[in-house]
């Protein structure tokens, strides 16, 4: 009787591209991995995540890849005939057409900078991504608006899920501890506003999350860190 050989690396190990992370036909390769015969290999540098039979690789680095429905923070870099161009930080910029920007009536030949001027920061949502990575952004939904005041910082786009936390738990933690308003864009930009000292602590907490995202016990360490800062 032929027995199938199966083996798998431990959850949360770091894998390099090409490294064999599991052997056996019973495993299912998910994002960041690929199958070659009996073996499942890592398709990039990252942390192995095992969920039953499904093996995923969580990337630790990499540029933001725009996805439908992502909430993003961007800067207006150009005013077009019928819309605006928004910089998302990455190889692709996005376009916000007139009708996605505002529900109010915009007369012909109106000065579009009255609505959004060059250099304005906005929170928007990606509503279309073509195969050639042409991106459409909309601001016509609750929670999407121009950003006033505060500061925008760049973070590692791959760490955004950790910064937000499960159902927003991590970002709520920081908000409550510092009293800052914060919005996290999937494209690796974070807007925050609050007392200067509080903003400083919030940024420090975010940098700490970026550095230690792959280590266990992050929530406890960030809680302790923020408590230490508020004393």
């Amino acid at each position: 009787m032929k027995t199938e050989q199966t083996s798998i690396v431990e959850d949360k190990t770091i894998a390099v591209p090409g490294e064999v992370i599991a052997q056996g036909m019973g495993f299912i390769p998910s994002t960041g991995t690929y199958r070659e015969n009996e073996n499942i290999h890592a398709a990039r540098l990252g942390v192995v995540s095992v969920d039953g039979k499904v093996i995923k690789l969580i990337p630790l680095s990499g540029t933001y890849l725009p996805k439908l429905n992502d909430r993003i923070i961007g800067k207006i870099i150009d005013v077009l005939m019928t819309g605006w161009r928004i910089e998302l930080r990455g190889p692709y910029s996005a376009v916000m057409p007139l009708k996605e920007a505002t529900s109010s009536f915009v007369p012909r030949n109106a000065d579009l900078t009255q609505y959004f001027a060059l250099g304005d920061w906005v929170v928007g949502k990606i509503v279309n991504v073509t195969s050639q990575k042409l991106i459409d952004v909309s601001m016509k939904a609750p929670g999407l608006h121009k950003l006033k005041g505060g500061q925008v910082i760049e973070v590692n786009a791959q760490k955004v899920p950790r910064i937000i936390g499960k159902e927003g738990s991590m970002i709520s933690l920081i908000r409550e501890a510092t009293g800052c308003n914060m919005i996290v864009g999937q494209n690796g930009l974070v807007w925050l506003d609050g007392e200067p000292q509080a903003q400083l602590h919030a940024v420090e907490a975010i940098r700490k999350i970026e550095d230690e995202a792959h280590l266990p016990g992050l929530t406890e360490r960030i809680t302790a860190f923020l408590q230490g800062k508020s004393e």
Binding site: P17, G18, Y34, A43, S61
Partner: peptide, 11 residues
């Protein structure tokens, strides 16, 4: 390239 997060089948 691996450090930069590029998709790579192998080193």
């Amino acid at each position: 390239l691996a450090d930069a997060g590029v998709m790579m089948k192998d080193l």
